[in-house]
Design a protein around this nucleic acid. Structure first.
Lengths: 355, 355
DNA sequence: ACTGGTATTTGAATCGGTTCAAGAGCGGTC
DNA sequence: GACCGCTCTTGAACCGATTCAAATACCAGT
């Protein structure tokens, strides 16, 4: 579709209408400044030439503002539609952008260079960085020189603008909920703590480089501590966030423990859901035999059977704060923390009698 | 964050390095053309000035290619993350774009004007139009003058480039499947056929302006006709695609029919899933009492309990074809039709004895 | 006829790069 | 010493608009 007819530009229209280019520009952007007669003459010329209106490309250069924000992740682009958390958050980001008439571009950091569409080259006014563990993204974004906000940043660098959540508080609330229901034998299902199924030590959870994993662990312990339950009494299962290793880990836990746990505190809804699945297959009733609390509040948690009690992120607020940061030049000075809320559904209930 | 220091541009770097702007440009884009010594001099100057590399804005104007495609819908932006079908398709589109190093921008058609980010102003190389009934989108895209492809276009205009699916064939396969299982009393759950719960006449289904609804209906009838079942023997339930009116419609059907259907042919997975839900609540077993076939093949269909037999769209192929159309200038001449495939899961089984 | 004021238009600068024909510098040949 | 073939560099045009100070047109008032 190589155009032989070279593109018609504003200049051509102006020429044909017998006006200056400046006037032609005004016809399209500030019609009230142009006399009616001239206006229609220009429109007629545009019509005759098949001019579609000022090209955004040209405008951009002059105006500077693209009126769009980019969301970047280290994962491939389809992550934004495949991952439950990302999808849930992006939905709010999209809604906020829509309400403000701004565009939304998805950016993956994989291939960069002057060739591919990356943080270096995306035509946007700023970035929302979905960082998980790699501050790499932040570094690249800084290089680009556009405003950016990190979401769920995994490092505690104070000078990086970030909108984050109170993992500690949310986790503590989750633990308190179980404690209030009478649970005393509780296990944690972790994420990002290792490769194989099995258990992790509290030290590992305390020292992982993933800040939110650390904080969630600390929160769980803090809540349990209020009932006199110490970290050493709480097994930590190693799982992948995609839920792949939860089965074996749970099997080991339920077979070898002298006292089987009556409740599970998961560090993400995905692992919680995987646990739910495993429990169902084992014929264990939820919450009859085992209660389960998730983390994140993804839509799947609500749809699960039984629906999952979980600590929900304030998606809308995160989106609003982050988008405003970019669009209103209101970059947070450092890390801003938003509260989470415990949503109680049907996967938690009173502790049954200990065996 | 108004910058007082005015932006550093390539020209500044060139000046400071004592080379021409053209050479400076080459340093960043075609380093092999520049002598090592000069190259490092320019880099040093860039470093000193805090120059982040050529701005995409400038490049764009000259180069023409944005290297990104826009996906547009008439719905608000969050539709792309909230709607199961859109999300599923976008996931593939994203994957294809990622593989080609292209960007992905989401566009809603709501607010346009020179102000908001719409089809008129999005900085992309072309559009994928998710049309549902309104050729409005097509019209706007034509005006913009960029290449575009319509997805699931609801009009049969032959000159609009479109990547579409064989609704008729898919629906026929679904009907054949039920027939082969011995079902003879079958109802159709329609979409886009009206406002209230209740039934629609075959005439209505034949004349609706939604092409794919028409085609799916025709396909169902064609498959059933092979077993001697005529359209007049098949009630058509009116439902909203969001599943909201399925319950009442089904209730009416199951209470008033002299012969209760043993199987349901749904025009979308969403209504099928809603039907599944209703049946569960009524204590009717699927597929024991009633078999259900969906349409679209969204991820939720697989996750449902029981998993839903459905006619699956070739998402990957659609995405590949459509993205290639834009990025490779391979716009289809007219409507291209891709085949669907029946995925048999656990929501369909042999017909039980008629009551 | 001249003046002041308002409504339109114009022209030129700018935005930030890319591109490419033409020129400069240089080592080697005949 | 003139000429050739190379490798780098330069300079200027161009991409498609927006913007704004200055120029012009038009009109009422005196």
């Amino acid at each position: 579709m190589t155009r032989l007819t070279k593109t018609i530009k504003l200049r051509d229209v102006a020429e044909r209408a017998g006006v200056s280019q400046g006037t032609a520009s005004n016809v399209f952007n500030r019609p009230e400044l142009v006399r009616e007669e001239v206006r229609s003459r220009v429109h007629a010329a545009a019509q005759a030439l098949g001019y579609a209106g000022p090209s955004p490309k040209g405008r951009l250069l002059r105006a500077g503002k693209v009126n769009a924000i980019g969301v970047a992740a280290a994962e491939p682009l389809d992550y934004f539609f495949a991952d439950p958390w990302a999808r849930r958050l992006l939905r709010e980001v999209a809604a906020v952008c829509d309400a403000r008439g701004a565009g939304l571009a998805l950016v993956s950091v994989g291939r960069g260079g002057p060739l591919g569409w990356g943080i270096e080259s995306a035509l946007v006014d700023g970035f929302l960085l979905r960082c998980a563990g790699r501050e790499l993204l932040v570094e690249i974004a800084q290089r680009r020189g556009l405003p950016f906000v990190a979401l769920s940043l995994d490092t505690a660098e104070p000078d990086v603008p970030a909108v984050d959540i109170d993992d500690f508080g949310g986790a503590r609330d989750a633990a308190r909920h179980l404690v209030a229901l009478g649970h005393r034998h509780i296990a944690i299902i972790g994420i990002g703590l290792g490769d194989g199924p099995g258990r992790a030590s509290p030290e590992l959870a305390r020292s992982t480089r993933f800040v939110n994993v650390r904080e969630r662990a600390r929160g769980f312990w803090a809540g349990l501590a209020e009932a006199g339950i110490g970290p050493e009494d709480v097994p930590i299962l190693v799982g992948q966030d995609d839920g792949s290793m939860i089965g074996p880990a749970l099997a080991e836990l339920f077979q070898t423990s002298e006292v089987r746990p009556t409740a599970l505190l998961a560090m993400s809804d995905r692992v919680a859901l995987a646990a739910l699945d495993w429990l169902n297959h084992q014929g264990l009733r939820v919450p009859g035999d085992v209660s389960v609390v998730g983390f994140d509040g993804v839509p799947e948690a609500e749809a699960a059977v039984p629906s999952l009690t979980t600590v929900e992120q304030p998606y809308r607020q995160i989106a609003e704060r982050a988008v405003a940061a970019i669009l209103d030049d209101a970059i947070p000075a450092g890390r801003e923390v938003l509260p989470l809320s415990l949503v109680i559904r049907n996967s938690t209930g009173p502790a049954h009698k200990a065996d």
